[in-house]
Nucleic acid binder design. Structure first.
Lengths: 197, 197
DNA sequence: AAAAAATGCGACACCTTTGTTCCACTTAAT
DNA sequence: ATTAAGTGGAACAAAGGTGTCGCATTTTTT
């Protein structure tokens, strides 16, 4: 997926790239308009070096978005969406996604305009998600006449909401598994009274 | 609420302020980093005038956020949250809020750091929302042991999701009432199969 | 140990934005 | 009709960011 350079990077250069990407995520997460210099400083590197590894600011952001998208796709796959029982897969994938999105809040956030690269990955993930939801519906946990696209959007929205934590205490009060359970439960049954289980 | 200037603005100055605020919302909605000049141009005014009416860029954004917050509070009140039957009020308030948030997407979005002014208003709205949800719970439409804060967050998240339209066709496919119904229904009952109604 | 690659550092030109000032001109208020 | 307030236009300084160089120095690689 990553662009295949003519010559492989030297060990230290590779480290720089890593450090820069990590720092960019950290810095941009809390200051979306941060300068290249702030990112460089956070990476323990000179601004010149940042420009040597990433021509544009755009190139840096794109690389960041691409990496984050890949991690996200991996998180979903790790849930075994097509071998495990659908509800189990959904739960696991949700917990994994919560972890990844918490760590890559900026790169996966709305502030980045997705490159085609990242957009394709996200589209693939969405497809995967729809398939999984379809299988869950086939098992009777989702109403047969439900609009799966709406279901997916609700699901995404709750994931986003949990990560904001704008209403509660910390950014993630509770472990991913607990939160994932809450999300899945709410999506399926809402907040109304339970008639039966 | 609005700062009370020593002398009231002249008619044309008032018009300028209106035009600038409206233009700012329009322009910033699709280009959050737009310059003062772009805003001025969209308002049919010179940049100088913008600076005459709003000292800082921050002052402009703050005024925008304050006005939008007020509109949002009005939208909620128009649902008659404490005189109408709770579910009716929720539905009406939701539809009104959808309209307002669609029109003030930037000022009410995450890109603006809320001033204390606006933050207070939003806090008041959240309180109002919790109260209404509490009354709905008392009527049995929400589980007695439900965490009302979580309910509120889910509700907010769905409103936000409907407005993004990132999965569907247009930015708002369907009229506010239809969408409001969908939101309320999903919050209460989720997407699972209905055992009874 | 020698060659190649990468980095730090300083400097440069260029651009955009912001905020302010002055002045002639237009518009609204009385 | 006179006065006061508002606007357009141009110009200015200050600030900050971007992207690019060259060169001395350090770090890998072979």
């Amino acid at each position: 997926m990553s662009s295949t350079p003519a010559r492989p990077l030297r060990a230290d250069a590779e480290r720089s790239v890593r450090a820069i990407l990590a720092a960019a995520e950290r810095v941009l997460a809390e200051t979306p308009g941060a300068s290249m210099e702030q990112i460089a400083e956070a990476a323990g590197v000179t601004r010149t070096t940042v420009h040597r590894r990433f021509a544009n600011r755009q190139a840096l952001v794109d690389a960041l978005a691409a990496e984050a998208a890949a991690k996200l796709a991996e998180a979903v796959e790790d849930g075994r969406p097509d071998t495990a029982p659908p509800l189990v897969a959904l739960h696991r994938a949700t917990a994994n996604v919560l972890r990844v999105k918490a760590a890559w809040g900026f790169a996966l956030g709305p502030a980045v305009v997705q490159s085609e690269q990242a957009a394709r990955t996200h589209e693939a993930i969405a497809r995967r998600c729809r398939d999984l939801l379809g299988r869950i519906r086939d098992e009777g946990f989702i109403a047969p006449d439900a609009d799966l696209e709406w279901v997916r959007r609700v699901y995404y929205a709750l994931i986003g909401e949990v990560l904001h934590g704008d209403g509660g205490a910390g950014p993630a009060e509770g472990d991913p598994d607990t939160l994932a359970a809450r999300i899945v439960d709410t999506v399926l049954y809402g907040v109304g009274p339970r008639t039966a289980r």
